[in-house]
Amino acid sequence: MKQTGQIILQRGVVLALFYAALVGIAILSLVVENHHPHSWLEAHLPFFWSFFAFFAAVIIICLSKWLAKAGLEAKPGCYDLPLGPAEEKKP
């Protein structure tokens, strides 16, 4: 029990540090000036790259799962499955 409690405490500390770092980075992005914005949003939306990273990551993860379900995912050995009943009767 004591060990489990320590692990939870450690995880809590790590998470707190992680979130604090994210807040720190986001605040830092307000301080640092972007001299060469590539789009209107980049120039005017605060935390632009934070939003970009978060939503791009969510899109990539969800899209990859959707692609897997849409037909990319197959059982191991799917390349060696018989092409049809005729192929099962190998000479």
Binding site: F18, W49, F54, I61, E73, Y79
Partner: peptide, 25 residues
């Protein structure tokens, strides 16, 4: 920002990326 916030998305959604013994055609 790119590293931190994509890591945030990863840890929130890592359940979706849990390994599965499948192949991808």
């Amino acid at each position: 920002q790119l590293l931190g916030f994509s890591a945030l998305a990863f840890f929130l959604l890592k359940g979706l990326l849990a390994p599965k013994d499948v192949v991808y055609v």
